[in-house]
Design a protein around this nucleic acid. Structure first.
Lengths: 346, 346
DNA sequence: CCCTAGCACTCTCCGGGGTAGACTGCTAAG
DNA sequence: CTTAGCAGTCTACCCCGGAGAGTGCTAGGG
């Protein structure tokens, strides 16, 4: 950092302001901080510190005679200077442990439950990004006749199933179809979706007409899996909690937030970067291009099987959020998910 | 009806009040109605009619010197006395036609698009209930080895695919598995999901241990498909529009609404009855047990393939909703969906 | 040099009072 | 049965003044 380290007491004051504001939702004054921060200095001293913090852009003033509230930068500083290893309340710890004690096999189902779990534990909304499937090797593919069309199934090594409808090429006999079914499956087995797509595109030009059509359709299908078409890109749970918070927000903010939540690909982009990071990540207010003018924050963490990143879980809530608890919850859930995934994978 | 038919002019006044209130969102007075209803009577006469309508429970008074607003019963009467065959604006008609001009094969994908379409056209939120799958005959089943577990796939005659993970029974050889795969598929082919489940349960007691385990697991899987476990029971689109409306509502109402939307099974129950009805159905405010204290209404209509009911589409919005447009939109979309489904099915 | 007490100042929030305006309900006449 | 007129009622709004909260500044003390 170029910026000189903030004095320890300024940090302490900032923390106190953030925590008090999150607790009460109202601007906090120097007196309150002096009483509750345990710093043992007078309100006047706190006032000086707060003025300095305001000068630095970490706090702001709704009006002259009101207390201070944190700016986005203030929350950022707060989060960045948080002591590592936040605590969870027992009830929360138990809720999380209990959830993962139930055995569930289908990952998407687990993740759906996870969003509910996170929303219950944190009182905000839970998010989860399932693995994209592009990296899951193909276990086999299958071509099934359905009515006048064909159903192309791609089954992944971990049990993921994707289906795509494709037109039946003209003049394709039933036995030729059965043969092609086996040929295709053998051709793609063990490849990742991306490789399978490449393989299909490579093989197409030299194949016979009927097969060529199918190979191209298969390539499309693999492409669709890669981009997540048809699948749920982002799972969301506990929206009702957000609706409660939303009562305090500006009307326009609420609309933007819900639009973003619904526009999954935008959300995904926001969360995707996180998959690459080690631990819990926090996006505050308008820090990200996609969150301009938000009064919301996202806390997210990746989960993995072994060392391969699988997906992301997280929480959306107001910028004035109880970061300590939320970060601890998200971390705990991501860790449990990783254990679960690693275990199943082994 | 036992109740004597309301006089034609009372109906006209009620319609005028509802429409004016929906347009402006504010209580409407006798003067406004006298001017715009085109009835050619004075405000005093309107006042008498309004007093009568209030006596009958169709209108209410926020306070003495305010205009009238419709009660839930008032909206109900309004909807029930609406002339048949509402008009759509050209832009809306075109949006709907345009959407269905694109060819899409996967029904769930179409329905997801439909919710967006409805929300765009009506400015409220769109709903869709996909076919439950219980009635779709089984085309084939498949048992795939995935890691240490088995993946049980059920493929329906119209291309529906359901997957369930089941534990691999101890001491089951690979070739025995392959055999069982074929046996099971033959056993269930052509049966509806409910029948397949019964069949599995019937056959289980007399089967060999390994097969018995699998049959029971299969029965569970069919049971899961029947109850819709794992699948999306209700698709929702355009929630952001609702969030906008929600700004006017009581805080508690907003929470209840979002909770209901998220609690899919409750929503489903609300919409399921509709599937049996012929045409557009409207649930206003707290008319249904699940909508106590709502300030929201649901407009929904079933869609079919030929004569078999498939599912439902609809719109959720405030009770003060533009029923004419919404009903026309929902009707148009349901009709188009039915055409599409009937055509594909043929 | 930093901290603290004290103080003047500013600005919001809240309640009161008074007014304008919107509708109604009633009455009496057509 | 309809209508004009009118008195009555209630809200929404504005303005005002006081209370309270919290600040910034200054001067004195460790």
């Amino acid at each position: 950092m170029v910026e000189p380290e903030l004095g320890a007491r300024k940090i302490a004051v900032l923390h106190a302001v953030v925590e008090e504001y999150v607790r009460g939702g109202e601007p906090v004054g120097s007196e309150t901080i002096a009483e509750r921060s345990g710093l043992g200095v007078s309100a006047a001293t706190i006032r000086n510190e707060m003025a300095a913090l305001e000068e630095l852009g970490y706090l702001m003033h709704p009006h002259t005679s009101a207390g201070r509230i944190p700016t986005d930068a203030g929350y950022r500083k707060y989060v960045d200077t948080l002591p590592p290893g936040g605590r969870l309340r027992d009830a929360q710890r138990r809720a999380i442990a209990g959830f993962f004690a139930e055995t569930m096999v289908d990952l998407e189902e687990v993740l759906r439950g996870t969003t509910q779990l996170l929303s219950r534990v944190t009182q905000y909304a839970g998010l989860a990004v399932p693995p994209s499937g592009s990296d899951e090797p193909v276990l086999r593919t299958e071509l099934v006749e359905v009515g006048n069309s064909l159903l192309f199934l791609v089954i992944g090594q971990h049990g993921r199933v994707d289906k795509t409808m494709i037109d039946r090429p003209d003049g394709l006999e039933d036995d030729a179809l059965a043969l092609l079914d086996r040929t295709l499956s053998d051709r793609f087995r063990g490849k990742t979706v991306a490789d399978a797509r490449a393989e299909a595109l490579k093989a197409a030009p030299t194949a016979k007409p009927a097969e060529r059509t199918l190979l191209l359709a298969a390539a499309d299908a693999f492409g669709g899996i890669q981009t997540g078409a048809g699948a749920h890109l982002v799972l969301i749970g506990g929206v009702a909690n957000l609706a409660d918070e939303a009562a305090h927000w500006r009307r326009e903010t609420v609309r933007r937030l819900f639009e973003a939540l619904e526009h999954e690909s935008e959300m995904l982009e926001l969360l995707r970067d996180v998959t690459l990071l080690q631990d819990v990540n926090v996006t505050i207010g308008g820090e990200h291009p996609h969150t301009r003018d938000w009064e919301a924050s996202i806390v997210s963490a990746p989960f993995r099987a072994g060392t391969t990143a699988l997906g992301t879980v997280g929480v959306v809530g107001p910028t004035a959020m109880d970061y300590v608890t939320v970060m601890a919850s998200v971390r705990a859930v991501a860790r449990r998910l990783s254990e679960l995934a690693t275990e199943v994978d082994a």
